[in-house]
Design a protein around this nucleic acid. Sequence first.
DNA 1: GCCAACTGATTGCGATTTGCAACTGGTTGT
DNA 2: ACAACCAGTTGCAAATCGCAATCAGTTGGC
Lengths: 164, 164
Amino acid sequence: MTDDRRSGCPINLTLEVVGDKWSLLIIRDMMFGNRRHFRELLTKSEEGISSNILADRLKTLLDADIITREDDPSHKQKGIYSLTEQGIELLPVLAQMAAWGYQYLPVSEELGIRARLLSEGGPKMWAEFMDELRETHLGQVRRRKGPSVGERLQAAYESVVNRT
Amino acid sequence: MTDDRRSGCPINLTLEVVGDKWSLLIIRDMMFGNRRHFRELLTKSEEGISSNILADRLKTLLDADIITREDDPSHKQKGIYSLTEQGIELLPVLAQMAAWGYQYLPVSEELGIRARLLSEGGPKMWAEFMDELRETHLGQVRRRKGPSVGERLQAAYESVVNRT
DNA sequence: GCCAACTGATTGCGATTTGCAACTGGTTGT
DNA sequence: ACAACCAGTTGCAAATCGCAATCAGTTGGC
């Protein structure tokens, strides 16, 4: 783990931290799938990450202060992973990638619906969702106003999945 | 070059196309550095990409319809690479990554100034810059209104570099 | 107390990807 | 004619990836 950087360009530095094929997917699952434990991230991943890669990426993300880990009081071996403020602020990056992928790539209907809603909702919806994440991951209190963005996204996803 | 995808998730599909350490840097150089030839991308890159990687990534980006290549009439061997509409629409992704990197990573002053301006300018400035890119890369005409975003970013960069 | 199932990982190992350096075959300017 | 320039290609060693098996500790059921 050397910290020599290729350049001081913000885009490059960001890529050096999360510019691989897995890190952002892990963060996506933590944000949209509410995965907080190792096993959840391992087995409920759409793409099937393997355990050594997951362990390695979690370590990297911990080092980069994008997530934190604390012990689960209900199980001595379980750890709970949480997003930090920095991690939560990666949401706009994910949202833009989702919007781009939704527009130009062969996205499946079930998995695309969230991207569509999030894209249509725009930065305002993103900010609201980030507030919800701050509540779930940082324990901050949020002034509620109706159904959460997370709930709405989940409901839309299920409605597509259950449609016969 | 198999086209089996890990999942139909828009974020995953986007990562499968540009989720490596170099592709987005090449696109960045084409957008902000106005690099259009192989040599320009190779030698004027901040990070020092090697020629085989560059050739490989350009091929991938061509296949993904993010860039196009045409012969340079002024030199039989030279090719001119241009961004497609899809490629230009990656700007918001880059802008968000730049904003995140600028806020949380040890960005150098010279290379950070563009990120700061672009972040402060927000989606409106991004749209304007994308229009300029459509002009340069797609040959579209643009209704001009004062100095271009590209010129403003470049001027800011040079002013930081030349400051003693 | 015993044991199966579950927990977060780690290890071994072959396949792939990366990246440096040298090189190729062709073009251009002088 | 010849040096400089052009877009790549090739060889090869090192690093990374990803699958499967394994590990050691924890928990719940009986």
